[in-house]
């Protein structure tokens, strides 16, 4: 029983990171119909930034959370304005290809600027302390991860549901043309979605690096893809769906490794994408999604 609970806790901790990534993907996809393949690479940049903060003697460690969040938020906006904005109105495929290009660009500028070699990522001591609650072993980082996701989720849903920009975001994701026509500055709305989503990706970078203790320029691509899977499971366009989808994916992935014989663990990625196909075929709108027809 303890083992099951332990796996569940680990799954939720991993799922929280997927959730943070998935929120950004789902917001952007909702409005622009763009799978931002570069989203995971923004997470990677966030991880590197966190490493810089932690490694520096001059910056307070507390900022290891804040700096990646803020800087990557801005970086996301920059990517949007330079690479995606010129493609407004272009076919979906053009945006998709561009985002692949951006992903490669970010990876290789990291390779060029730093090194292709993985480097270790050391968390500050207090975050690695672990303790037991009811037989489950958790680290401070796990707690921080779960806590941040809950807080951010609440904050974000207040923002989306109550604020003027949030309202405009929902309108834009339902019908971009109509939103533009009634005088919403959709570029602001899209920019806001990128800033928010990328900021969360930057934060996820710190958490991911802390969890695995190692960072490299290509670390972001697969988590990015998996986060998209999470967003699809939850129902693309829905923030609540992204969070729930992320949690489901995290728990399923950890469960797959934890409860099946070890020779299967190499197939965990295969399992994740198998899950994606299953969801797409059985319930293409995910758990909380609305059909594309309804949003037309």
């Amino acid at each position: 029983m303890d083992y099951v609970l332990q796996q569940l806790a680990n799954g939720l901790a991993l799922g929280s990171i997927y959730a943070l990534l998935a929120i950004g993907l789902t917001m952007v996809y909702g409005i622009l119909r763009l799978i931002n393949f570069a989203h995971g690479d923004l997470m990677m940049l966030g991880a590197y930034l966190a490493a810089v903060v932690i490694g520096s003697a001059y910056i307070p460690i507390v900022l290891a959370v804040l700096v990646p969040t803020v800087v990557i938020g801005i970086a996301g906006l920059l990517v949007e304005r330079t690479a995606y904005k010129p493609l407004r109105g272009a076919p979906e495929v053009a945006m998709l290809i561009t985002s692949l290009g951006v992903s490669r660009l970010l990876q290789n500028s990291t390779v060029m600027g730093l090194s292709p070699q993985p480097r270790s990522f050391k968390l500050p001591g207090d975050l690695t302390t672990s303790f037991e609650i009811a037989g489950i072993r958790l680290t401070m980082l796990d707690l921080l991860t779960l806590g941040l996701v809950v807080v951010l989720m609440v904050g974000l849903s207040v923002f989306i549901n109550k604020s003027r920009t949030g309202m405009a975001m929902r309108a834009s994701s339902e019908n971009l043309q109509a939103a533009r026509l009634i005088g919403i500055n959709v570029n602001h709305v899209i920019g806001a979605a990128f800033v928010l989503g990328s900021a969360l990706a930057g934060l996820a970078g710190f958490l991911w690096a802390g969890r695995y203790g190692i960072i490299d320029p290509f670390m972001g691509f697969e988590p990015g893809l998996k986060a998209f899977v999470a967003a699809v499971i939850g129902g693309i366009g829905s923030i609540r769906g992204a969070v729930v989808g992320g949690m489901i994916l995290g728990v399923a992935e950890i469960g797959f490794v934890g409860f099946l014989p070890p020779e299967f663990s190499g197939f965990r990625d295969a399992f994740v994408f198998g899950l994606l196909l299953l969801v797409l075929l059985v319930r293409p709108n995910g758990l909380f999604g609305t059909s594309e027809v309804e949003r037309a």
Binding site: L105, Q107, T110
Partner: peptide, 12 residues
């Protein structure tokens, strides 16, 4: 990384 960087940039 230069080569890949240039190619990615060219694609965009």
């Amino acid at each position: 990384g230069t080569a890949q960087l240039v190619i990615a940039g060219a694609l965009i």
